[in-house]
Deep mutational scan, measured.
Amino acid sequence: MMAYMNPGPHYSVNALALSGPSVDLMHQAVPYPSAPRKQRRERTTFTRSQLEELEALFAKTQYPDVYAREEVALKINLPESRVQVWFKNRRAKCRQQRQQQKQQQQPPGGQAKARPAKRKAGTSPRPSTDVCPDPLGISDSYSPPLPGPSGSPTTAVATVSIWSPASESPLPEAQRAGLVASGPSLTSAPYAMTYAPASAFCSSPSAYGSPSSYFSGLDPYLSPMVPQLGGPALSPLSGPSVGPSLAQSPTSLSGQSYGAYSPVDSLEFKDPTGTWKFTYNPMDPLDYKDQSAWKFQIL
């Protein structure tokens, strides 16, 4: 009977010793046993002879290597770790002494450095960015050149030099007046198309007034536009458009034309069986010896 009264063996659950049927240790109110408190290391007290050895090595170098620390530790009968900690504390003490010396050398008012006064946003004049500046400075420094007289040679050079070769001289006033084509001369031969040399188009003023001019072949195509416009036809070669000034309004060009419109200028042929003959000019830059190549039959 006494065997049943004795408590059973101890069981360990999660490293906790349980005594038989008792489960009081598993209750929430019972805390787990805490780790033992780490003991504080005792402070090391250095003797005068030990301090002399350490100070002598510190005077040589503030960062001794492990071999120098072990050698000193053997002399003063201390572990190497204590020597390492002593050098660490000695360097910190040396830095603190240097900072105190710097503070003593500075004057009393030198510690508080005078800061520059901050400028207020409204006091300083700042350039306004509302208006974009002129990058080319046209509004201040540029002045347009004065327009020359209508009959000045410089204007003629600016007008005619675009179309004339570089080897030719500017046309005088008398020749510029001949550039304007007359109405009857352009409409006299509506079906004849003559190819003149390129030099005649640039230099010869008579080429624009003769039936064999460069633009005589364009007349049949330009004249039928007159009834559609409801007024006189516009002429690209009329009046002052080739003269001194090219800047004319469309209203000033509306009254200039080749001449009176005639039914002869239409595109319809009077004789459907007729042929169109292209007159060959020996001055043509295209060297075609066979003139029969310039004739064709309209079917």
Rank of each mutant, 00 (worst) to 15 (best):
M2T: 00
M2C: 00
Y4I: 10
Y4K: 03
M5C: 00
M5G: 00
M5E: 00
N6C: 14
P7C: 13
P7K: 06
G8M: 10
P9S: 02
P9Q: 04
H10G: 01
Y11I: 08
S12V: 12
S12R: 11
N14C: 15
N14V: 15
A15N: 01
A15L: 12
L16P: 00
A17K: 06
A17G: 00
A17P: 01
L18S: 01
L18P: 00
S19H: 05
G20F: 12
P21N: 05
V23E: 01
D24A: 15
L25G: 00
M26A: 04
M26C: 06
H27Y: 13
P31M: 12
P31Y: 11
P31C: 08
P33L: 05
P33A: 03
A35E: 07
P36I: 08
K38N: 05
K38C: 11
Q39H: 06
Q39V: 09
R40M: 13
R41H: 14
R41C: 13
R41G: 14
E42K: 14
E42W: 10
E42Y: 08
R43C: 13
R43M: 14
T44G: 11
T44R: 12
T44L: 14
T45S: 13
T45D: 14
F46D: 14
T47C: 07
T47R: 03
R48V: 07
S49G: 11
Q50M: 06
E52F: 06
E52I: 08
E52K: 11
E53N: 06
E55N: 11
A56L: 04
L57T: 10
L57Q: 06
A59V: 05
A59Q: 02
K60N: 08
Y63R: 13
Y63F: 12
P64G: 13
D65Q: 14
V66E: 11
V66N: 04
Y67G: 03
A68N: 07
A68D: 08
R69D: 14
R69M: 12
R69F: 11
E70Q: 05
V72R: 14
A73F: 15
K75N: 10
K75R: 07
L78H: 05
L78V: 10
L78E: 13
P79K: 03
E80M: 08
S81K: 05
V83S: 12
Q84V: 08
Q84S: 06
Q84H: 09
Q84W: 12
W86V: 13
F87P: 15
K88Y: 13
N89M: 15
R91H: 15
R91G: 11
R91F: 14
C94V: 03
C94M: 03
R95F: 14
Q97A: 11
R98Q: 06
Q99P: 11
Q99Y: 10
Q100R: 09
Q101E: 02
K102N: 03
Q104E: 04
Q105D: 03
Q105C: 10
P107D: 04
P107W: 08
P108C: 08
G109I: 04
G110N: 02
A114P: 07
A117S: 07
K118I: 01
A121N: 08
A121L: 07
G122I: 12
G122D: 02
G122Y: 03
T123W: 04
S124T: 09
S124F: 07
S124R: 05
P125G: 09
P125F: 06
P125T: 04
R126G: 02
S128M: 07
S128Q: 03
T129C: 05
V131N: 09
C132D: 07
C132H: 08
D134P: 08
P135R: 09
L136N: 03
I138H: 10
I138Q: 07
I138K: 09
S139D: 08
D140P: 10
S141V: 02
S143E: 04
S143H: 05
P144Y: 01
P144Q: 00
P144N: 06
L146D: 07
P149I: 07
P149Q: 03
P149G: 03
G151R: 09
S152N: 08
P153C: 11
A156P: 04
V157W: 12
A158K: 06
T159I: 15
V160E: 00
S161I: 13
S161G: 05
I162W: 01
W163K: 02
P165S: 07
A166R: 10
A166V: 08
E168H: 11
E168V: 10
L171K: 06
P172W: 12
P172K: 10
E173S: 09
A174F: 13
A174L: 10
R176S: 03
G178D: 02
L179H: 07
A181N: 02
A181H: 03
S182I: 15
S182C: 03
P184K: 08
S185W: 15
S185Q: 07
S185D: 06
A189D: 00
P190K: 10
P190H: 10
Y191P: 00
Y191K: 07
M193D: 00
M193R: 09
T194Q: 02
Y195E: 00
Y195T: 00
A196H: 07
P197H: 08
A198G: 01
A198T: 06
A200F: 13
S204C: 14
S204D: 04
S204Q: 04
P205F: 12
P205H: 07
S206R: 13
G209D: 03
S210Y: 12
P211L: 13
S212G: 10
S216R: 07
S216I: 13
G217T: 09
P220A: 08
P220N: 09
Y221S: 02
S223E: 01
V226S: 03
P227F: 14
Q228W: 14
L229C: 03
G230T: 04
G230E: 03
P232R: 05
P232D: 03
A233M: 08
S235Q: 02
S235H: 11
P236A: 13
P236Q: 04
S238T: 05
G239K: 08
G239N: 07
G239M: 06
P240V: 13
S241Q: 03
S241P: 05
V242Q: 06
V242L: 07
V242N: 03
G243F: 12
G243V: 10
P244E: 02
S245N: 06
S245Q: 05
L246M: 04
L246D: 01
Q248M: 04
P250N: 07
T251M: 10
S252Q: 04
S252L: 10
S252R: 12
L253G: 04
L253K: 10
G255N: 05
G255W: 14
S257Y: 12
S257G: 05
Y258M: 02
Y258R: 07
Y258N: 02
G259H: 07
G259V: 15
G259D: 04
A260T: 03
A260S: 08
A260Q: 04
A260G: 04
Y261E: 02
D265E: 13
E268S: 11
F269D: 00
K270V: 13
K270L: 14
D271I: 13
D271M: 15
T273A: 02
T273N: 03
T273M: 10
G274R: 10
W276Y: 05
W276P: 00
F278R: 00
F278Q: 00
T279Q: 01
Y280T: 00
Y280V: 10
N281A: 13
P282N: 04
D284V: 14
P285H: 03
P285N: 01
L286G: 03
L286P: 02
D287R: 14
Y288A: 04
K289E: 05
K289C: 07
Q291L: 12
S292P: 08
S292K: 13
S292N: 00
W294L: 00
W294D: 00
W294P: 00
Q297H: 04
I298A: 00
I298H: 00
L299Q: 00
